[in-house]
Design a protein around this nucleic acid. Sequence first.
DNA 1: TAGATACCTTATAG
DNA 2: ACTATAAGGTATC
Length: 298
Amino acid sequence: MSVERGAVALAEFPGPFDLQSTVESGQSYLWDRADGRMYEASGAFGGDAWYETVVRVEGEPAVVRVRQVDDRLEWESSADAAPVLRERLRLDDDLPAIRRTAPDDDVVESAFDAYWGMRLVDDPAFPSLISFICSAQMRVARIHGMQRELERAFGSTVEFDGRTYHAFPTAEQLAEATEAELRDLGLGYRAPYVRDTARMVADGEARPEEAVGLDYEDARESLTRFVGVGDKVADCVLLFALDYLEAVPLDTWIRTTIEEYYPDCDRGNYADTSRAIRAAFGGEYAGYTQTYVFHYLR
DNA sequence: TAGATACCTTATAG
DNA sequence: ACTATAAGGTATC
């Protein structure tokens, strides 16, 4: 299979862009660094590192390899990668306008300054769902490692540029996994959650995309039908895959931030605290602010 | 309905 | 070396 190459001129899109922050900030677990140094030296070096993932273009798997060199996004793929990059990395988001909706207190300002250019990702729903089911009580680097293991064990292979890559497994592929196999990959108690959720999707009982179109809180409720998905994981999928930019996942880091800087927003339960912090973070794009703060404090 | 507890595994701190 | 602790929580009681 031939290797096509191209470049995306970032000047055509509103505001700055930072590839490393975007793919190494714990939003997406579908990208891998070609040099194997994912999460090793955030910000210190590797600003022009190559990142790779397997996407689907019209149903067919295609490897996409991308790196940022100054104001260009250079890519290599078996197909035209530009439209995929534009969508998945949210290049059309008007970052300066979004930032203006955020509060201008010290934490938020510092977070935006530290990683200015980071975008939210727009991942496919099922892989995002599985990734965040795996994220319970896990560190970012290990969640990432688990997804690579799932791909290697259950995903389809794709040949590209003389190497073999693995796509993220489909629900049907993952539904075939046994709990023991998943535990052997290090998933621990998340193993039955992943298997059961994959079965629900494979059996046609429910699909994460069904949440799209519902009011935000109904969409969150819809996702909690899946096994291993509570309010927090549901918020992650809404924010990083289903285009609900107001979603603010209440994880340990944000809860600590609320305690320290927004004590009035602590309402004692998820739903009410969520409403309060979403309002404090500016409403419509509150999830953007959450993601900057998360990455900054982590 | 709100609150407590078990749950896999691993990296890191002490 | 060895143990305690915590990691982007959820299900169950």
